[in-house]
Design a protein around this nucleic acid. Structure first.
Lengths: 337, 337
DNA sequence: TTGTAGGCGTTATCAC
DNA sequence: GTGATAACGCCTACAA
C-alpha cells in the first residue's frame, strides 16, 4: 500500500517578511506597508517588493497578522444542523457574503443541542470577530464578540427575521382565494422562536377575522421534519380541506403521507409549505410554498455583522418579507368542484 | 428604531496571561504551563492560577497561541455546494470528527467553479493545518498544507473513496434479481472522478457478463441534479424497465418525471438511486438506493488528516463499501407479472 | 518615502 | 516546580 506523509518542505522553511525584505533590499516595515497600504510606498520599491514576494512565494502568516492587528477577519456561523437544507441555504449565503467582505467563515453545527450550542459559541468567540447565530431554540450569548441572530429577535443583539405574519397571511389568503374555509395549520416546535411567532400570527389572524371567515385548526406542535409531516397528516386532514405546514420538510411529509393514504393532492387536499427550499420543487406534485428570502437572510446578517465590526451601528431588527411560490399542491377544495 | 453597537467592554480590556499571573502572584510562564501542562505544576499554585483564571474570565488569545505554537488547530473543508445534501452530510461528519480532535473547521463553498476552488484552497491553506477536499471535478493543490481528498484518488494525497464498482454491482444485482434484463444506467458528469470511475465499472460489468446477462443502456452524461433526472427520464425509459441513477437527486427527478408522465414507479418502471441521502426517503415511493457511508467518508478523511498532522503516515487510499437500502421504487419488471 | 523600535499574547528553552 | 527570557511573524506610531 502506498503511504503518504505531510509534504514537509525538505530544506527551505516558509519565507517571512524579513526574508522578502532582505531579498528586495528594503526594511521589513516597507514590505509590510507594500502589502497592506501599497499607496504609501514608492512605485519602484513597490515593484521590487512585489517581485521579491513573487520570487519567494511569500504569504503573510495569518496568526501573526491577527495577533498584531487584534482581529481575525473571520466570522463564525452556528446552525443546528448543516444537513437541513434550510440552514444549509443560510450558511451558503453567509459564506458568500463573508467572502465578498474578505472574511473567512468558521462553522459550527450544534446538533440542535443547547449545551453544544453554548460550547460552540464559546469556542467560536475566541477565534472570530463576530458570529451569525441561527439558533431557533435558544438565545446565544457569545461573550465578547458581536452576534447577529437569524430568525430570532432579541433585546441584546441585532437580528434579521422573516415576517411570520406575512407568511401566515400569504398562505391563508392563497387558500381562501381558492375557496378553502377550514384549514389546518401545523404548528412548529414550541421551543422555536419563529414557531411561537407564527402561532401568534395565526391567533391574531383568527381574531382579525378578515373576510372570508376562515376556520383554523391548529395541529401540533409537530417536529419541523419530514417525519413530523408524515405523522401529522391524519390529524391535519381530519376536518380541513387544506393544510399549512410549518416548513417545507413537513409539507413534503404531508404530501407523501397523503400519497400513502390514497388521498390526492391537491384534488382532495391542498398542502402549502414554507421556506421555499429546493426540495419543494422536488415533490410530486410540486409544493406551493411561502418562500423565505434565504439568501437575503444570510446576506443581511453578514452585512449587519460587518457594520458592527466596523464599529458602525447596526439596524436593530431587519424584517424580511416572504413571497408565495405557486406550484401544484394547492387547488380548490373538493366540494366546490 | 433601536440600534445596537458592538459590545465593547466599557473600561476593562480583555485579560491576558500577564493579568492572570499578576492576580495569582506567579510568573506568566507558570500560568501558561498550568493551562497547557497542568501536571508540571504544583497543586497549590495550580489551584491559585485556576482561581485567577476564573476570577478574571481569562481565555487564551488564539492567534497568539497559534503564532507561538506554529499551528492553528483548525482544518478546512472545501465543497462545491453546501446546499447539496450529499456534501452537507460530509461536512457534518467532518465537523463532528474534527471537533472530537479539538480542531476547528473552516468551510469554503466553491460553487463548483474551479477558479473559486483554487482560490479557496489558497486562502484556506494559510489559516489551517490541513484540508479535506471534496472536489469532484478537479484535483486540489493546497501548497504547503496536507490535503485529504474525498471521492477522488490521486497520486499526491491520501484519499477516501466509495467503491464505485460495488455501487454498480449492488444496483444491478438487485435489479437483476427482480427480473430486470434491460437496464438504463445514467452517467454522471464526465468531469467527475467518481462518474468516470463508475462508467468504467459499468463497462467492466458488461464485459464480465455474470449471469443473468444484462443489457445495459448508458444514458447521458446527465447533470447530477434533480433537473438532470427529470430530463433524463424519457431517454432512460425508452428501452429499459429499470433505471440506475447516478445519485439520489437524479433518482428523485426520475421518479417525479415518471409521475408526470403517468408512468407508475415501480410497477411500470424501477428506479434506483445512489448515495443514501435523507431525501431518498422523502419521495413517493421511497427510493431504493445504494447508500454511501457518508459519515464514514468524512470521519475517515479527518482521521487521515489527523494522522498527517501528527506527522504519522496516512494510508494511501481508503475504499469504503456502499450498502443497498431497499425501499419502494424497485420491483419486478411489468412483463413478468 | 523609508527606517526604527516597541508591542501584540503565548510558548518553549533555559537556568535556578 | 518556578522564573526569566527569547522567540513566533507581523503591524504601526514615530522619527528621520
Amino acid at each position: 500500500m502506498r503511504c503518504y506523509r505531510a509534504a514537509v518542505a525538505p530544506d527551505r522553511r516558509v519565507p517571512t517578511l524579513a526574508d522578502v525584505a532582505r531579498h528586495a533590499g528594503v526594511h521589513p516595515a516597507t514590505v509590510s506597508r507594500t502589502l497592506s497600504r501599497p499607496e504609501l510606498v514608492a512605485p519602484a520599491t513597490r515593484a521590487a517588493v512585489l517581485a521579491a514576494v513573487e520570487a519567494l512565494g511569500f504569504e503573510p502568516n495569518l496568526p501573526a497578522r491577527q495577533l498584531a492587528r487584534g482581529r481575525t477577519d473571520a466570522i463564525g456561523v452556528v446552525v443546528p444542523d448543516i444537513t437541513n437544507p434550510y440552514f444549509a441555504a443560510i450558511v451558503r449565503a453567509v459564506q458568500r457574503s463573508a467572502h465578498d467582505l474578505d472574511l473567512a467563515v468558521l462553522i459550527a453545527d450544534t446538533d440542535g443541542d443547547p449545551a453544544a450550542e453554548a460550547r460552540a459559541l464559546a469556542t467560536l468567540a475566541r477565534q472570530v470577530d463576530g458570529i451569525v447565530a441561527v439558533t431557533p431554540t435558544s438565545e446565544p450569548d457569545a461573550g465578547r464578540v458581536p452576534v447577529v441572530q437569524v430568525n430570532r429577535r432579541s433585546r441584546r443583539t441585532p437580528s434579521v427575521v422573516v415576517d411570520q405574519r406575512a407568511v401566515v397571511d400569504l398562505a391563508l389568503d392563497h387558500l381562501a382565494a381558492l375557496g378553502h374555509r377550514r384549514i389546518a395549520v401545523v404548528r412548529g416546535p414550541g421551543t422555536y422562536w419563529s414557531a411561537a411567532r407564527r402561532d401568534r400570527a395565526v391567533e391574531q389572524r383568527a381574531e382579525r377575522t378578515p373576510r372570508p371567515k376562515l376556520r383554523l385548526d391548529p395541529i401540533g406542535p409537530v417536529p419541523p421534519t419530514f417525519a413530523g409531516g408524515v405523522d401529522a397528516f391524519a390529524a391535519a386532514t381530519q376536518r380541513s380541506t387544506a393544510v399549512v405546514a410549518f416548513n417545507d420538510l413537513q409539507a413534503a411529509g404531508l404530501v407523501v403521507a397523503a400519497h400513502r393514504a390514497g388521498v390526492a393532492v391537491p384534488d382532495a387536499c391542498s398542502v402549502i409549505g414554507s421556506d421555499g427550499l429546493d426540495i419543494a420543487a422536488m415533490t410530486a406534485p410540486g409544493l406551493t410554498t411561502v418562500a423565505a428570502p434565504l439568501d437575503a437572510l444570510g446576506d443581511i446578517a453578514v452585512e449587519q455583522l460587518g457594520a458592527l465590526l466596523r464599529g458602525e451601528a447596526a439596524r436593530g431588527v431587519v424584517t424580511l418579507t416572504p413571497t408565495l411560490v405557486e406550484r401544484h399542491s394547492t387547488a380548490a377544495p373538493p366540494r366546490t368542484r
